[in-house]
Amino acid sequence: MSKADGAAAILWVGATFYALFGGADFGGGFWDLIAGDAERGERPRALIQRSLTPVWEANHVWLIFILVVLWTAFPPAFSAIFSTLYVPIALTALGIVLRGSGFAFRKSLQGLSAQRAAGAAFALSSVLTPFFMGAAVGAIASGNVPADGNGEAFSSWLQPLPLLTGAMFVATGAYLSAVFLVGDARRAGEEDLERYFVRRALAAAGVAGVAAAIGLVELHAEARYVFDRLVAQGLPLVIGSALCGVALLALLLKAGPMGRNPTHDVGNRPIGGWLMRVLAAGAVVAVIWGWGVAQFPYLLPTSLRIDQAAAPDPTLVTVFIVFAVAAVLVLPSLGLLYALSQRDLLESEH
């Protein structure tokens, strides 16, 4: 593996973490959006708020990480992407601003209508942001970003495949989030909410599955290079993702979207909670790496190769060092944050 490939792998690691954790945070906003009126939606919203509050900012940094690695290690790719896809990217930025500030403001604003407005800004932008992000990614995969940049501002992404990718981003986030929230509800001992999110996880899994299937057809039509490699070199990953998905589906169905929850063993210890999370994550991770394998060795299929876009070696080495330091310092710290948060040592309410 060349240094440039190594840097690309780091980019993909960042994308993986962002998809898992950032994606789930977006999904939380999605469930918030459709949780119904103030009374009906109160408890699910409170659960979402509780699980998001301590971690969303840390999760968000993965996006910064991706941007920074992209512009440092592959400056021409960064420039080409941003000078072509500036419309969906600017809308993504707008969504991030509204989402973050809406979330931070809504609890502390006085008055129900102000709180609702901030809540709505948060929830709505939680859907629009991943959608436009996905549209941009779909446009890259479709080969609509020319290596020199300044590609078509609208027809690069207003195509079936990019739009479908946007929808898939939303559905995937919703799916991850619902699975994570099942565990959170279980920990909080709120059985009805647990079932509530089991049902939603099932629905989201269905939508994501259908979108993925249509996506494959569109991929065949619009991004032939990527499709061909996906069903050849990327096939094990595609199968892996499907297996994870099916296994999770089985677990969710067993958990019983309606009836009493049979996944508690005799001592009423929850079983399968972590397994569910791992399977949900596995399905998503496999798709992301499948995509990476499928467009290898291109960063921008099929106009810019990884090695053509790469910065000089000392810069790449610096990126490796930064990544190593991040692995040593940041990952354990993140682990500490999640551990404290999962053990309810971090309070977002009282």
Binding site: P54, V55, E57, A58, H60, V61, I64, F65, V68, V69, W71, T72, A73, P75, P76, F78, S79, A80, F82, G149, A311, P312, T315, T318, V319, V322, V325, A326, L329, V330, S333, L334, L336, L337, L346
Partner: peptide
């Protein structure tokens, strides 16, 4: 960014680590 990202980008790459740690410990 196209022309100089490779040079001055390294500063931001390092910044990324600090942002992570700041967001984590702040929380």
């Amino acid at each position: 960014m196209d022309r100089f990202g490779a040079a001055f980008g390294v500063a931001f790459a390092i910044e990324g680590i600090f942002f992570f740690l700041e967001a984590i410990f702040l929380a």
